[in-house]
Amino acid sequence: MLEAQKLTKRFQDRVAVDSLDLRIEPGEIYALLGPNGAGKTTTINLFLGFLTPDSGAARVAGTSVAEDPVAARRKLAYIPEMVSLYPRFSGVENLDYFSRLGGHARQHTELYELLARSGLTREAADRRVGTYSKGMRQKVGIALALATGAKALLLDEPTSGLDPAASHEFSRMLRKLAKDGVAILMATHDLFRAREDASRIGIILNGRLVAQYSRDEIKDQDLEKIYLERLSA
């Protein structure tokens, strides 16, 4: 569903992503682990087509991002670290607007229902977003992914700054989406969440994927130890 082939991006003389090969199938949650500046966000930007790769290709459900970024974007949903919404609009108005932009205009009752499924009460959905907490914004992001029926989901540090309860609820939603067949790429440095949620974990360092582990491989191991060893290697 999400596929990267020898994906490479340079900024001036620095290589941000270095011939990255990646393949994420429907139903998978892939956690891309790495320190700040390792190339996680650049990878996501390349999948979104916000940056053009210097070589290699990114594909979403077979569509090359570089060739047709708009068609590729139509197939995915994106939830950044901080879901940005229009503060003068309510949650449901934001969802309405964004899902229309994504080409999925929906009835108001449907929108409320999607927000409810993401954990937002009707009362909260009618409030202006200027008053929302970070967790509530993430819920609107999830609802948007539901509304557009995205086949792939890109997450950029989705849980950083969330309190444990909100973080837990967010994970629950993610797993549900994966169960429904969505392919999920999650850039994070939250080891705990990666271990809990991911079906596969990749460790990225200076733009290179230095190691990959399946859920089973790390089941009984100390992820933090492996991660720190990899970084110092």
Binding site: L48, A77, V83, Y86, G103
Partner: peptide, 13 residues
């Protein structure tokens, strides 16, 4: 504010 990323991630030209 970051909304531009979101809008374009939805496939808006």
């Amino acid at each position: 504010s970051g909304t531009l990323r979101q809008i374009l991630s939805l496939g808006v030209r």
